[in-house]
Simulated assay, not measured.
Amino acid sequence: MLAQTAVLAVGLLIVVITAVVLGPRMFYYELVQAGHANEAAGLVHLEHAFRSVSLTALAIGGLPALYIAGLLTFYLYRAIGRSLVSFSTAAQEVAAGNYAVRVTSAKLGPEFDSLAGSFNEMAAKLDAVETTRRQMLADLAHEMRTPLASLKGYLEGIEDGVVEWDDRTTSILDAQIARLERLARDIRQLTAAEEGTTGLQLTPQDPEQLAVQAVAAIEPDAVGKDVSVASLSTGRGVAPVLLDRERMGQVLGNLLENALRHTPPGGSITVHTNHTPDAVTVTVTDSGEGISDKHLPHVFERFYRADAGREAHRVGSGLGLAISKSLVEAHGGTLQATSPGPGRGTSFRIHLPRRTPTD
């Protein structure tokens, strides 16, 4: 505000100097140059009157203008100052961990509105990240508690002589250790995929061939559970797709394992590969339990369980779908889940755009 007021005052001073001091002299000089030296000499005595009238006119017009400009400057200073104080206070709240804080628009134009919107969006995302972090830590502690409790119980039983150290005990301990190792590995993979540090080795691949291999890998388990699994393809592959063969095989394996886990005996699983000129879609469809509309938006969240009552019989780390989604997105594709409802099966659809090595 002081700088703006100083600019206005200096501008008014320059106008005064120009009109009162330089104005008469310039007018006198122009008369002489135009050949009216005699008339110019007769106007010298009017300089004082001219200066007096000019000063009066400038005072009447300039001082109120300066006053009004000062008021407007003060208003803008207060408005911008309040807005900046609001932003500063909100930023301090966010720095202190209060991500629920929001700022209102200062109504000072689209730039300030955009700034307020961006700040609120940032705070909302930080709030979501913090909520996810807390939930993940709680879920991680829950996931580790079961195998650790089992290990502790058996080791204490062995020390007390209540449990014999035999092949059955060894297999149980090995299974719990493997569960912890799988959990640690999956967390590492999920973190790398979400942060974009997976290091994909992209080479031209045929998704149909990867689907056939994934089906062949899970077929023995499916036969043992009396579940039929098949692969089919439609459309014409006009060009291979740039994929990381190992990572996409991991995605298909995760989706097939998830489908087999939730498909009862006598059910079926189908992997459908569809080729189009612009993209390839791979859809894993099962005839199993299905997912309700309430749980469908959350299936890709870490450790999410639609049926908490089945926790004791659940296998895996609970991160397979989250890892799969992150890996597909790292390929530039999308992974979506759909289900007609409970008891009517589920479909997971991978959409992969065709890209050339220069893309």
Rank of each mutant, 00 (worst) to 15 (best):
Y154F: 03
D186A: 14
A91Q: 14
F300N: 02
A19Q: 09
A65D: 06
A96C: 08
Q250I: 04
T131M: 15
V280N: 02
L12C: 14
R302S: 14
R133M: 13
H36C: 01
V282I: 10
A216I: 00
G157Q: 01
S52R: 14
P353Q: 01
A123F: 05
L13G: 14
A184P: 12
G343S: 07
I218V: 09
Q176A: 10
T358A: 15
P204L: 08
V241N: 03
H262N: 08
A41G: 03
D166H: 07
S114Y: 06
I218H: 09
T234I: 03
P24W: 02
V32T: 02
F87E: 02
A90T: 08
D226S: 07
G62V: 06
A306W: 12
A239H: 00
I269W: 00
I14K: 12
M136I: 04
L173D: 04
L22M: 10
T358F: 15
T356G: 13
G249I: 04
S118C: 02
R302Y: 06
E156I: 04
A100M: 08
A308P: 09
A69G: 13
D221I: 03
A9E: 02
E289M: 15
I60P: 04
S228P: 04
Y304E: 03
A106H: 07
V315I: 08
S114M: 05
R168E: 15
G309S: 00
D174V: 12
V282L: 14
V85Y: 12
M136K: 10
P277Y: 06
M26Y: 11
V101L: 07
T276P: 04
T338S: 13
M1N: 05
Q92S: 12
R182A: 15
K107T: 03
G266D: 01
T283M: 01
E30C: 10
S326A: 15
Q4V: 12
V280I: 05
D167P: 01
H331I: 01
V103N: 05
G196L: 05
S292E: 11
M136G: 09
T203D: 13
A214M: 10
L319P: 01
L72W: 11
E246P: 04
M26E: 13
T89G: 07
